[in-house]
């Protein structure tokens, strides 16, 4: 019995490892990239604003699965640069680029929700635009975007299952393989529990962050 359990759990744990890796690399890189895009979207250079606008429109306007296919299956056929990426690299790139677009819009809205008086107060004290952003606007933006960022993060956990489609051995794929192998349903339940555990932890972390930021206002 114990041995059979481990025949289910071990592959699922391995799959979870891949899922977590994809999750962390996406969060770690898409948040800074999203911030840069958000700042570009409100920049005083029209060209920069327009380019960012198009980028965000493309990545939010097409399915993530399509983008994943494009990076993994599509890139090799592009003349000259045609490169074949490994499954994980392709997945990571598609996820980072896609999530950065979502985070960019969340951050942009957060930045623009900060009262104009804050910029004026800072300017009257001699602060530059970037000092104002770094010290005054962005720290307040963080508090305001915590709820939508929390939502995106939870969505990301579940979206990682999409990489199943390019044959990357993540959590869902691991479960599915055992289901096929042993003709049983329980691996799906185990997988569900793993997803729930991950989203639970994320919810708790954001709850904690919101408490920390509750000291003011």
């Amino acid at each position: 019995m114990m041995e059979y359990m481990s025949r289910i759990i071990v592959p699922i744990l391995n799959g979870t490892g891949v899922t977590l890796q994809l999750f962390f690399i996406t969060i770690l890189l898409s948040i800074p990239l999203g911030l840069i895009l958000a700042l570009a979207k409100i920049s005083k250079f029209k060209f920069l604003r327009d380019m960012t606008g198009i980028y965000i429109w493309l990545l939010r306007g097409t399915p993530l699965l399509l983008q994943l296919f494009f990076v993994y299956f599509g890139l090799p056929f592009i003349p000259v640069i045609g490169i074949r990426l490994g499954r994980f690299t392709a997945a990571a790139i598609a996820f980072i680029l896609n999530y950065a677009a979502y985070f960019a819009e969340i951050f942009r809205a957060g930045i623009q929700s900060i009262d104009r008086g804050q910029y004026e107060g800072a300017k009257a004290l001699g602060m530059t635009y970037w000092q104002t952003m770094r010290r005054i606007v962005l720290p307040q933006m963080v508090k305001r975007v915590l709820p939508p960022v929390s939502n995106e993060t939870i969505t990301l956990v579940k979206d990682t299952a999409l990489v199943y489609a390019i044959g990357l051995g993540e959590l869902l794929r691991a479960a599915k393989q055992i289901v096929n192998r042993d003709a049983i349903t329980s691996p799906f339940i185990v997988a569900a529990v793993f997803y729930l555990a991950m989203t639970f932890v994320i919810t708790q972390i954001f709850k904690k962050l919101e408490q920390i930021y509750a000291v003011y206002e």
């Binding site: 008086g117 107060g121 602060m127 010290r135 206002e217």
Partner: peptide, 24 residues
């Protein structure tokens, strides 16, 4: 300003030392 425009995420002390430290 009429509406103060204090920085809500900083304490009173932090509000006052912000510009001297960052700007000057």
């Amino acid at each position: 300003f009429q509406n103060f425009n204090l920085f809500p995420h900083q304490t009173v002390l932090e509000n006052i030392i912000e510009a001297p430290v960052i700007v000057n």
